[in-house]
Simulated scan of single mutants.
Amino acid sequence: MGFLVQFVVFMLFPWFLSVRAEENYSSQHCDFPAIFNFGDSNSDTGCMAAAFYPEVLPYGETFFHEPVGRASDGRLIIDFIAQHLGFPFLSAYINSIGTSYRHGANFAAGSSTIRRQKRTVFEGGTPFTFEIQVAQFNQFKARTRKFFNQDAQGKNSFRGHFPRPEDFAKAIYTFDIGQNDIAAAINKVDTEDSHAVISDIVDYFENQVQTLLGLGARTFWIHNTGPIGCLPVAMPVHNAMNTTPGAGYLDQNGCINYQNDMAREFNKKLKNTVVKLRVQFPDASLIYVDMFSAKYELISNANKEGFVDPSGICCGYHQDGYHLYCGNKAIINGKEIFADTCDDPSKYISWDGVHYTEAANHWIANRILNGSFSDPPLSIAHSCRAQ
């Protein structure tokens, strides 16, 4: 018996030391001085509103009580990330009125894609691709350094408005982009090789992350894309379909299977790329966050979590194939329709059929920030220490 006990102790002792080391390791919080965010409308805090047409009510009604450039009734996941890390909300990079970039900047823009698209802004495209966002960041970093050098010579005083030059290497870089690329690929699924397209999208993403690594970024918090087949505006219940969807078209939550499968393929290739970059850049920390699973968990358990059916849309008119988006008016079947909001947005997952409500964003943020959906499984506050 004594030998058996010694053997067990011998086998478990290394494991015990590793657990203790991990506990000590994870107790060390990262001292992030700033956040730099890249993405699409899921994390745009005012870029498109500043560049083109501002949001109108009821956008922003729940938390801000006015439109603030966010595609939601309130806060986005990036807002909850900033709050969790003790920062103010991120200002959009091109929003010049009343902004401060002391703790970072947001380069995300609605409709943005990883790859360049042929569509114009008026066709739903955007000039603010991932490549452009990275170029904007590069300019921001260079001009910030210039201002600080001038300040040291007594020419300017910008220290209270911009990150310090040394903050860029210590900052956390967050990403939520790719959904619009997948949507574009879905629209061309019959005319393009979707597998090749998805591989190309991920390659473009990798190139831009490598550019940021070359510019000194070292901590990356990378969201994969969500279950695009679960966006209510695409569900058959909100579209005029002459036939009932065939077997296998929808899953148990009413989501479109083939669209989610494309998102899953993108996510798998994205994760492989993140793993590859970790090997190439061992001094960097690259966290892969499974947003798909977090969002799908909410959709699957909507009623249990206090939400209405996940196909429900709080703001907008989506009936019989007519899509009138939140805050707009139109004549439909001879009747003037105003796409107003629901009585209680906190009960809905979907705000406008495409974007999430503040309540849903808050629920998702609470699930991802502690590292439950991360690889490696570190909370965002410890994400600088992944390697």
Rank of each mutant, 00 (worst) to 15 (best):
V197D: 02
H223I: 09
Q319K: 14
I81C: 03
L286C: 02
S18Y: 11
V233S: 12
I368A: 00
F148L: 00
F175V: 00
R102D: 06
A21E: 06
P376K: 08
V289L: 06
A135F: 13
N361E: 15
I172P: 15
H84W: 12
C342H: 05
K268E: 13
Q153H: 09
N106P: 14
N370H: 12
E265D: 14
A34C: 03
C230R: 10
T191I: 13
Y296G: 00
G110Q: 10
G316Y: 08
T273L: 08
R115E: 12
V189W: 15
A21P: 08
D251T: 12
N207C: 07
A284V: 02
D290C: 02
K170H: 11
I186C: 05
A184N: 09
N42K: 09
G316H: 05
A92E: 07
P165K: 07
S350K: 04
F13A: 03
F63D: 00
S27Y: 03
A169H: 15
Y53Q: 12
V56Q: 10
G60L: 00
D251L: 07
A386D: 06
L298C: 02
Y101P: 03
G69M: 04
N180I: 04
D40M: 03
F147M: 10
R367F: 03
N149P: 04
F281S: 13
V274S: 09
R145N: 14
S100H: 05
K269V: 05
S157R: 12
F89R: 14
I35H: 01
V8A: 09
I94C: 10
R264L: 11
A71K: 06
D181K: 00
V274D: 06
A240G: 05
Q150L: 10
